[in-house]
Structure formats: C-alpha cells, structure tokens
Design a protein around this nucleic acid. Structure first.
Lengths: 230, 230
DNA sequence: AATCTGCGGGCTGGATCCAATAACACGGCA
DNA sequence: TGCCGTGTTATTGGATCCAGCCCGCAGATT
C-alpha cells in the first residue's frame, strides 16, 4: 500500500497534504537506498524535482526528522541519518520486546479473516523473494509483520514499532542479497503464520523473538564490518 | 499577560530554530492545560501572539503532530489531541514495559554522580510537591524518572519513553491534586532511589512497575469517570 | 416552515520574496 | 610557502502574498 511511487494523485482522492505525500515519497527513497546515509538533502533541488516550492519540502523534512530518518542542523540543512551498529542493536532489542508483546496479545484476537489476510501478504512476500525484488520484499516484510500485530488492537505500540522498523529497514535492504538469514527468514515467516493459525502463543512468540534476533545480529555484524573498512 | 516566557531569547544562545522554540513553548502550554483537548489552535492567532509569521508555527505544528499532542486535518487546522481511557491504558502498559527495561540496565551503570544528580532532582520534586506547584511537579517528575534511566545508555528507548510520558503527562497534571496516588508516588520516588543506591535491581524494578501501574490505574479511572459525565 | 443554494468571511495550504548564515575560494601578509 | 582575513556564493530561515477550501448565513424555492 501507500505505493510510494511518487505522487501519482490520479484517482487517489488526495486527502493528504502535499507535505505528507512528499514525506512518503522521500521516506521510500531513503529506504530504497536512493539517498544514502550522510548524503545531504537540498531543499531547492527536491522542490524543483517535485515541481513545487521549497515550503512543502521543509515541512516534509520535519516529519522525516521526527521519524529519525534525517537529522537537520540550523542553517546547515538535512542529511540522511547514519546508524551506528550500537544503535541498531538497541533498536532490534526494542523490536524483540515490543513485537513479542504485540503478537502475544494479537493471537487470541485473530479471526480467520485476519489469518487469511496475513496469508495473502505472505504469498506476495514469497513471490518478491523469488523474484529478488528487494525493495518490494522490504516493504512487504514489514507489511506481513504488521498484519500479525494489528489484531492486538494496540495502535500506540504498533505506531512505535512501525517507526522502529522503518528506521532499520533501509539497512536491512542493503544487505539482503548477501545474507543467508534472508533465506531462513523466509521459512520462519511461514512457520510463524502456522503457529498463529494453531493459536500456539508460546511457540509463535519464541520463534518471533529468534527471528528478530537473528536479523538483528546479522545486521549488526554487517554494520560493524562496514564501519571497519570505512 | 501572555508573558511569552518561552522564547526569551536573551542569554539563551538560541542554537535552536524558531520552530523548535515554538514547539517547546506550545508543548509546555498544552501540558499545562493552557490549551485543552479538543481546543483548536489557530496559526494566525499564535503567530501574532509570538510576533512572528505563520510559517514557524506551521513547522512547530508538524513537530507536535509527530509527538501525538495535536492532530491536524487538511484545510481544517489543528486541535489538541484527546485521549480515550483505552489509549491511556495502553500507554501506561508501554511505560511499565519500557521503563522497567531501562531501569534494569541503568542500575548497574549508575555512578555516584548519577545518584547524586537524581537525588538533586528528587529534592526539587519534593519541594514542588510541598508547594503544590503542579506544573513544576509534572516536569520534575519526568526529569527524575529520566535521570534514573540515562545511565542505561539507550538513547532510542529513552526517546520513545519520553514521548510516551509527554503524551500522558498533561492528563496526569489535571488530576494531580485530587489524587491520593499523588502522595504515595512521592514516597515511592524516595524508596526507588534508595533501591538504586543499594543496587537492588529486583526491588527497584518491582517498585517501579507498581509505581507506574498505580499511576496508570488512577489516571484511567479518572478518564473513564470524566468521559461518563461528559 | 424547512431545506437547498449561493455567497462571503476566515482560515489554511502553497508560492514567492527577502534576510541571514555558513561554506569556500581568493588574495594579502608574515 | 603556509596561514589568516575577507568577500562571494550557495543554501537555509522567515515574512509576505495569493489561491483554495470550510463553514456559516441569508435568501429563495417548494
């Protein structure tokens, strides 16, 4: 959803303001690695690219800054936020903690429709995996996790978890192809859904924790390796 | 009377931009109950009050919206966010979860200087309590908690917890005087600090959990009562 | 009398314009 | 030759201006 494919407003009933649309688009481009960590975002350039004035860009920047994707300094502009390995570590611990809680509360509430919806996303996710469509896989990956948590009915927690996921996602996408955990994750997703169907909270949560930890460890070691040769 | 005691730029080395200063000031006024839930914030009025144009106000709004303190609709402006009891419940469960983790990791890292700093804040907190200075008590209350968590060295988690606290704080302030839990909280703070000094992680975390739960229950029932007679 | 409709005021969203700051390069001086 | 001060330029921050959307009100029509 949210397509992100750049402001195609046709038939979309644009009930969102231009700054929001811009923020969506820029966020997607950052996640895609289109803008790399440390790279600076120039208001005027983006304004021209999107054929609008600098003002919507500025407001979009505020949103992205609040999400932790960019950092801005007064009179010095915005740069894409970097992520030290230590920070990634912390964010993954947060994920383990919060997503466990969400899943635990979600499973008892899951309806058949919920499970079918997750199944649907998982299918697409598997397809993206086979096609090696990294960006699509990345966004579907979160979509799948999210679909499992929605029945928990915890919008605040879900919003926070979504923010954390967005922050780490772009690094995940960068290392997807070279990671073996990528393949394991694929199988774990399927198993996770089966545990949910069986209403096996214990097994599901345990698997989820391991699933996130593995991804985190893989990412952290990758970041540390990168910071060495940098 | 508007005093404008945010934004006193003299001697403040304003290394922050005007929108940020505005956001700080507005946030404080929302927390103080100066702006009540549901009340709408008008760009022009605020711009005139702060003697600036509407643009910084708009950017400040984006920040406050990201923090969940206001909600904005396109072409309809910004209103102070309300908080259903259900949402308060969830936020307090988040606090229990996240602050426990923070304290648990913080205690082993606490230096004597850290403990002294917390002691200092606690003194001021107690003073504010005796003087029934609600707003000051509210901000010092968070300051005290925060001082206990800082040694955990988890900036991401701390930032999230701070956001959660800000969201609920204004409701806490509204009911402070009529709440007996307010008095209990005062004693618990002291006990909490003593447990930290003794490096008694178990006892400290247990007390913290109870401390937050009590506050949460008290707030939730207060909100439910309020929503009934509304 | 009630509802629909057209109009106007007030407010927000976005564009353009001006001021201020910071990076950079050039030239002077030791 | 190397360093420091100054002027230039690119870019951001803030103000003002214009267009478009909500909403309330008045008048007309059934």
């Amino acid at each position: 959803m949210k397509s992100g494919m750049g402001l195609t407003k046709s038939h979309s009933l644009k009930r969102q303001s231009l700054p929001e649309a811009l923020a969506d688009s820029l966020r997607e481009r950052i996640l895609n690695g289109d803008f790399k960590p440390g790279e600076s975002l120039v208001q005027e350039a983006l304004a021209e690219e999107y054929e609008c004035s600098r003002m919507p860009v500025r407001e979009a920047f505020r949103q992205l800054e609040a999400a932790g994707l960019i950092v801005t300094k007064v009179h010095k502009g915005a740069v894409v936020a970097a992520m030290p390995a230590e920070q990634a570590q912390e964010l993954y611990e947060l994920r383990v903690n919060l997503e466990s809680v969400l899943l635990e509360h979600a499973i008892p509430n899951m309806t058949d429709a919920d499970l079918d919806a997750s199944e649907q996303v998982l299918r697409e996710l598997e397809k993206a995996y086979e096609e090696r469509d990294i960006n699509r896989w990345g966004s579907l990956n979160w979509e799948f996790h999210r679909s499992l948590y929605v029945p928990a009915n915890r919008t605040q927690t879900l919003a926070i978890v979504q923010g954390v996921n967005l922050q780490v996602e772009r690094y995940v996408r960068l290392q997807l192809l070279i990671s073996e955990t990528f393949e394991a994750a694929q199988k774990e997703h399927r198993a996770l859904l089966e545990y949910c169907r069986a209403r096996n909270v214990e097994a599901a949560v345990a698997l989820l924790k391991q699933h996130i930890r593995d991804a985190g460890d893989s990412l952290v070691s990758s970041l540390e390796a990168r910071s060495v040769d940098a």
